[in-house]
Measured scan of single mutants.
Amino acid sequence: MSIQHFRVALIPFFAAFCLPVFAHPETLVKVKDAEDQLGARVGYIELDLNSGKILESFRPEERFPMMSTFKVLLCGAVLSRVDAGQEQLGRRIHYSQNDLVEYSPVTEKHLTDGMTVRELCSAAITMSDNTAANLLLTTIGGPKELTAFLHNMGDHVTRLDRWEPELNEAIPNDERDTTMPAAMATTLRKLLTGELLTLASRQQLIDWMEADKVAGPLLRSALPAGWFIADKSGAGERGSRGIIAALGPDGKPSRIVVIYTTGSQATMDERNRQIAEIGASLIKHW
């Protein structure tokens, strides 16, 4: 067993022997301040990774656009098919120029040779490549099948209805392509620590998230040296922004954090800054 596999296998073990965790309302004060600064709703939840206990939450059962955070769930569904012998990570998928959609920095470079399922998941999570996500959605049967996968996990809230990039439209009061912070946090925890996926697939999923290259201005910008984070960000229309993450000190994750916002007129930089400040408060009061 590799060191990384050992780390993920012992996530519940280490967490069980940690000192009790206590909620700190100071972080919620910052979440509410972010709402004021952005002029928009902000949803927040913080779960203990081992027990699933909610440590703090704000608007945990209000719907927010998922945006690209759905790509972690998508690759979880792909990995479940791999575990069941219905898919192979090494299978190569070929596609054409007509398949390319807006923001496809990886797939646009491989029109000639195609990409493997493993490479597509890596591109979808680490670079948020939209064509990679659409190609992977095709392998599982489309958005409705991802929703069905989530329902089978016990998540009857999260739903995907459309493809990239239309799913980022974020129309107010439109339930399409949305989740709730509580539902997303619980589902992410199941994917990373539950028995739904094999140990190898859980490790692969967290490795992809740990290698995320496009979430630097968010929670990662607030992390002290030595902290662990595996995350996936999302951005959408109407001032929408979000991030889902597993993080913790001492090089291992111990909490799940989900943050979503929508309806702001603020710039992307300002949305990023507010999420980073929430992260800084979380870490300060850990």
Rank of each mutant, 00 (worst) to 15 (best):
L74E: 04
V257H: 01
P105V: 07
R91D: 06
Q86K: 13
P105K: 06
L79N: 02
G242Q: 02
A40D: 05
P181Y: 00
T69F: 01
I244M: 08
H110V: 05
L196M: 13
W208M: 08
F70I: 06
Q203F: 08
N134R: 04
I243V: 11
H94T: 14
G142I: 01
P12A: 13
R255C: 03
H5Y: 12
L205I: 09
Y103D: 04
I93M: 03
L192V: 11
R159K: 11
L219C: 04
I125T: 06
T178P: 00
I278L: 08
M153E: 08
Y103K: 02
D36V: 14
K213G: 08
K213H: 12
M1C: 01
T158D: 01
V258R: 00
A235R: 02
I171H: 15
K190S: 13
A40I: 05
S96R: 12
A40L: 05
T158R: 00
L197R: 05
M115T: 04
S57W: 11
R59Q: 06
H156T: 13
S104C: 07
E270Y: 07
R241S: 06
M268I: 10
T126V: 10
N173Y: 12
L188P: 00
A276L: 08
P181V: 07
S128R: 00
E169V: 12
A148S: 15
T107H: 01
M209E: 00
A40Q: 09
G194D: 13
L218R: 02
F228Q: 06
L135K: 05
A15F: 15
L219G: 03
Q265S: 15
C75T: 12
I243S: 02
H5C: 09
V101N: 07
A245S: 10
L199I: 15
R238V: 09
I243P: 00
G90P: 08
D231C: 04
A148V: 13
L19K: 15
S201E: 02
M180S: 15
S122H: 12
P60V: 12
T178K: 02
I125L: 12
F64A: 01
D113K: 12
N152K: 13
L55E: 08
A215Q: 05
H5M: 15
F58K: 07
G242D: 00
L191C: 07
T267C: 10
L73F: 08
Q88Y: 13
I125W: 00
I259Q: 01
L120I: 06
M66H: 05
